[in-house]
């Protein structure tokens, strides 16, 4: 937000994290269901990618909805 006008920086951050969260969660759920033949990361059985994707989704959603430009003041 600049001088009370325009879109907040936190909305941009929220949008990017939300998008990343969706991509990373989907990619890692697919990986969990049908693991690739490539070398697996250490502790892959923890499915850390899925959890990290969900974390990004949550943080992204909070910023995205809290700072959405169409929010009624």
């Amino acid at each position: 937000m600049i001088g009370g006008k325009g879109i907040s920086i936190w909305f941009f951050i929220g949008s990017l994290l939300l998008l990343y969260g969706i991509i990373i969660t989907i990619a890692n759920v697919v990986e969990m269901v049908s693991p690739s033949v490539d070398k697996q990361p250490v502790l892959h059985e923890l499915n850390f990618g899925v959890w990290w994707g969900i974390l990004l989704l949550i943080i992204g959603s909070v910023y995205f909805f809290s700072f959405r430009p169409w929010k009624k003041k």
Binding site: Y20, V30, W52
Partner: peptide, 12 residues
């Protein structure tokens, strides 16, 4: 990073 990061996390 290569040791721990799976798909997408490496890109991140």
């Amino acid at each position: 990073l290569a040791r721990y990061a799976g798909p997408g996390l490496l890109g991140l």
